[in-house]
Amino acid sequence: SAQEMKHMENLSSLAQGSGPMEFQPSEQEQPWELIMDKKHFRLWRRPIQGSHLYQYRVFGSYTDVTPRQFFNVQLDTEYRKKWDSLVIKLDVIERDVATGSEVIHWVTHFPYPMYSRDYVYVRRYNVDKENNLMVLVSRAVEHPSIPEDPEYVRVRTYESQMVIRPHKTFDENGFDYLLTYSDNPQTVFPRYCVSWMVSSGMPDFLEKLHSAALKAKKMELEVRDYLSKGSDTAPEPCGPTQLEYA
């Protein structure tokens, strides 16, 4: 969206300097709080109105892999089973060839002593060649073929949006990314405990994702190319109504 592009431009320019980086919320929005500030990675959070949960936003940059590699490694479920040790199950349940939407069932370990969590979500990706952006959006849904399993805790509230902007092109090293994320892990722990788990787990996941992209590049591993569809026609933009499972 235009707003996300503006965020990316502001953050990218601010990242070149040493001054503090802040998001300017609208009058209706809660302010963002910076909770982690590293050289190539910054993490904010803000309360979600009417709940005990937070929404998180990450801005980061990598210069040693291409946007295409980073994007493909995120989407390749079979490869993720190899590099993400927390995955118990990760399967594509349904795929819409016309729109590129996929329904995913994901089961993941949670820190002891919590039960493992499972997610059923629809994801949609879009490569915007005109604006030089890549977008991946995920959102929790219900699906008739994946009923709840008493062995896991079903996470019913989950949203994620990743925007990637190449420094040059999709196939040259270097890009910025902006990740906005929220979920309700269905835990009885206080909000500060959940916040700690997310703020420590998210950087760890992103670094594992980065390492997996580097490994795929170095070893020339076969990772599915989600940008090559046999056509120059990009998928239609993904709006909220298109993310609903029907």
Score class of each variant (00 low, 15 high):
143 H>F: 09
143 H>E: 05
143 H>M: 00
144 P>K: 13
144 P>E: 14
144 P>T: 10
144 P>F: 13
145 S>D: 14
145 S>Y: 10
145 S>L: 08
145 S>K: 15
145 S>R: 13
145 S>I: 07
146 I>W: 04
147 P>H: 09
148 E>T: 04
148 E>V: 02
148 E>F: 01
148 E>C: 04
149 D>C: 10
149 D>G: 09
149 D>Y: 05
149 D>N: 15
150 P>G: 07
151 E>D: 09
151 E>Q: 09
152 Y>F: 15
152 Y>E: 10
152 Y>A: 11
153 V>D: 11
154 R>A: 05
154 R>S: 09
154 R>L: 02
154 R>E: 09
155 V>P: 07
155 V>F: 02
156 R>S: 14
156 R>K: 15
156 R>G: 11
156 R>Q: 11
156 R>P: 00
157 T>F: 03
157 T>M: 07
157 T>E: 15
158 Y>C: 11
158 Y>R: 11
158 Y>G: 13
159 E>S: 11
159 E>N: 10
160 S>M: 09
160 S>I: 01
160 S>K: 01
161 Q>F: 04
163 V>I: 14
163 V>R: 00
163 V>S: 14
164 I>D: 00
164 I>A: 03
164 I>P: 06
165 R>E: 11
165 R>Q: 15
165 R>W: 06
165 R>K: 15
166 P>Y: 06
167 H>L: 14
167 H>A: 12
167 H>S: 13
168 K>W: 14
169 T>M: 08
169 T>F: 10
169 T>V: 04
170 F>D: 02
170 F>G: 02
170 F>T: 01
171 D>C: 03
171 D>S: 06
171 D>Q: 07
171 D>P: 03
172 E>R: 04
173 N>A: 04
174 G>Y: 08
174 G>L: 09
174 G>T: 03
175 F>W: 03
175 F>R: 03
175 F>H: 04
176 D>W: 12
177 Y>M: 04
177 Y>P: 00
177 Y>T: 01
177 Y>F: 14
178 L>Y: 11
178 L>K: 04
181 Y>W: 03
181 Y>V: 11
181 Y>E: 09
181 Y>L: 15
181 Y>D: 13
181 Y>R: 07
181 Y>G: 07
181 Y>C: 08
182 S>K: 14
182 S>L: 12
183 D>P: 07
184 N>I: 01
184 N>M: 04
184 N>P: 09
184 N>R: 10
184 N>E: 14
186 Q>E: 12
186 Q>F: 01
